[in-house]
Design a protein around this nucleic acid. Structure first.
Length: 574
DNA sequence: ATCTTTCCTG
DNA sequence: CAGGAAAGAT
């Protein structure tokens, strides 16, 4: 991990904030953030005004993804998924008990300026525009080619799925031939000569359409060397992707994924455990049939529904796929500073699948089998493609206006694609690092910065509890060192400083950044120093005789939160 | 009344 | 760090 975030992401002055008397609404004092504190990614849910239709559609697709991939996280309690390094066997039972006991709803308050500025530079000015344009053009061309390649892979995978489900039609070879031809540049309309299978025809049509779309983009690339090239190409490129993916998805839908309208219920309701059979590949027909026959027992939000394996005996073709992605997979690094290309997104999806973790790994609950990493790639491929197709279309759905900033597209994908249930040690690590920026994160902030976590009451409480524990340790240290300063006979608060050499800092760093592989922002040192001063002053004024003397200090400190850098949304913190 | 936070314990 | 009681906030 080489995270060394620039300190200008932090508040540079605390005084301005201190004057604010509203602890719930933070007013970031960004000297260098014209875009301010508006989060572009926003929260994974709800903040994009979506129609009911869209939400229902999205919920259905999410459910499809989950079911099809047989997510290892499809089990019941989020907490039971937590990687349990301390080996307490009673944890799950305790969690279940706690979950049942808890009645409170998720905290929804205090949404202070989620997310920091997106350091998206307005682009270089006039001087080097020529070279820049050439570079841009070249990059875009590369993107285009890459996307074409990926599209072919997509189609190939797509066909693999169907050829497995419908072995009577050996359509795959046919498609491979088509792809081969396409690769060789043989424009042909003979794609769907052959089986006469309707689906094949449709899919081939998709292929042709997509390819034609790509050709349009190519045409633009070659024709437009003008000053608007960059934007034009971006739009063309992205539109092409969206259109193609959408077409693919529509074929999937027409093939058998039409689900009954979503019955949105309390999303926090319990789900039936999926069991290990949940990860086996299932034919689309299976979904159709079970959807029809068991629709009455679907009382939960579709996105949460996981089919009980007992309902229908599953194919025994692939015995035990426990994990749809490689255990030792390199976490996908994403940097908003360099917007991710669509093709990279596709590539990642193709490589690792929709449930691959762009961020945190490992994310396997201890109960899951980690011993068979070899089994991951084979059957997963077939499952994965369907999920990929639908996953990507989910994002299409949530961005119908074709907002084409790659970063946003990726964020949307990331949210929808890598949903984890349960918090892992890497989530804990990330939370600790976030503490360097925010001591009092709102639940909305937490949701924003843990987009790969499927939140429920329990998870939210746990995350909040983490920060509560962090604070506890923090304040204990502060009090301890403040009292020590008293004992040491320091009479002036100004003589108390917190530097990276300070013992106090070392203690804190050891706690929140044990690996010491994260560059703690200077602002945290400032906040620590302020906190220490507050404690010192209070103790010096003998205010600690008041049982609630710390409250005043908490009130001050809670205003010193900074925005957590965007990188925390997607980067890996392992 | 419900939810958040702190405090204490293990 | 989690569990739970209790205080605090709304």
């Amino acid at each position: 991990m080489n995270l060394s975030l620039p300190d200008q992401n932090m508040h540079s002055s605390s005084e301005g904030c201190l004057d604010d008397d509203k602890p719930d609404i933070m007013l970031p004092c960004f000297p260098s953030s014209p875009s301010g504190h508006i989060s572009i990614g926003a929260s994974p849910e709800g903040e994009h005004p979506m129609t009911d239709h869209m939400q229902a559609k999205r919920a259905r697709v999410e459910n499809i993804i989950r079911v099809m991939a047989g997510s290892p996280n499809s089990r019941q309690h989020g907490d039971s998924e937590r990687s349990d390094t301390d080996g307490k066997d009673t944890r799950e039972a305790r969690e279940a008990y706690r979950e049942n006991k808890r009645k409170q709803r998720l905290p929804q308050h205090q949404d202070h300026s989620v997310g920091g500025p997106v350091s998206r530079r307005p682009g270089s000015s006039s001087s080097d525009t020529c070279n820049t344009k050439d570079e841009e053009c070249h990059k875009l061309k590369e993107q285009l080619h890459s996307m074409q390649r990926l599209l072919r892979q997509l189609q190939e995978k797509f066909l693999q799925v169907y050829s497995q489900e419908e072995p009577e039609h050996d359509s795959r070879d046919e498609m491979e031939v088509a792809i081969e031809h396409d690769t060789l540049g043989e424009t042909t309309d003979t794609y769907y000569v052959g089986t006469g299978d309707d689906f094949e025809r449709k899919n081939s049509r998709v292929t042709v359409d997509c390819r034609d779309r790509m050709k349009e983009v190519s045409y633009v690339v070659h024709q437009r060397e003008s000053h608007n090239l960059q934007e034009t190409l971006k739009q063309e490129l992205s539109r092409a992707v969206n259109e193609c993916v959408d077409k693919v998805f529509k074929k999937v839908s027409s093939k058998g994924l039409e689900l009954s309208p979503g019955k949105h219920a309390d999303s926090t309701q319990e789900q039936p455990p999926a069991g290990e059979a949940a990860l086996k590949p299932r034919s689309l027909e299976y979904y159709e049939s079970t959807e029809a026959q068991s629709s009455q027992d679907q009382t939960e939000a579709l996105s949460l529904v996981v089919r009980k394996p007992a309902v229908t005996p599953l194919s025994s073709v692939t015995p035990s796929v426990k994990r749809p992605y490689p255990v030792h997979q390199t976490p996908f690094q994403f940097n908003y500073g360099t917007p991710l290309h669509d093709s990279q997104i596709l590539e990642h999806l193709l490589k690792y699948g929709p449930h691959s973790n762009f961020g945190a790994l490992p994310c396997m609950p201890p109960s899951m089998d980690r011993t068979s990493p070899d089994s991951v790639d084979l059957p997963w491929d077939s499952i994965a493609m369907r999920s990929k197709v639908t996953s990507m279309t989910v994002d299409n759905l949530c961005l119908p206006h074709v907002k084409i900033e790659c970063g946003e597209l990726f964020f949307c994908l990331n949210v929808n694609v890598n949903i984890q249930e349960g918090l892992t040690p890497s989530h804990l690590k990330k939370a600790k690092l976030m503490f360097f920026y925010t001591r009092y994160p709102s639940s909305n902030v937490l949701k924003t910065f843990f987009p790969d976590v499927k939140f429920n009451r329990c998870i939210t409480s746990q995350l909040i509890k983490w920060f509560s524990n962090f604070r506890e340790f923090y304040y204990i240290q502060m009090e301890k060192f403040a009292r020590q300063a008293m004992v040491d006979g320091i009479s002036d608060v100004k003589d108390i400083t917190v530097s990276r050499d300070s013992e106090l800092f070392r203690a804190l760093n050891m706690h929140y950044n044990k690996a010491n592989d994260f560059h703690v922002p200077d602002r945290f040192l400032e906040v620590a120093e302020i906190t220490l001063h507050e404690f010192y002053n209070a103790i010096a004024a003998a205010k600690d005789s008041d049982p609630s003397w710390k409250k005043a200090i908490y009130k001050v400190i809670c205003k010193l939160d900074s925005d957590v850098p965007e990188e925390f949304k997607t980067s890996s913190y392992l």
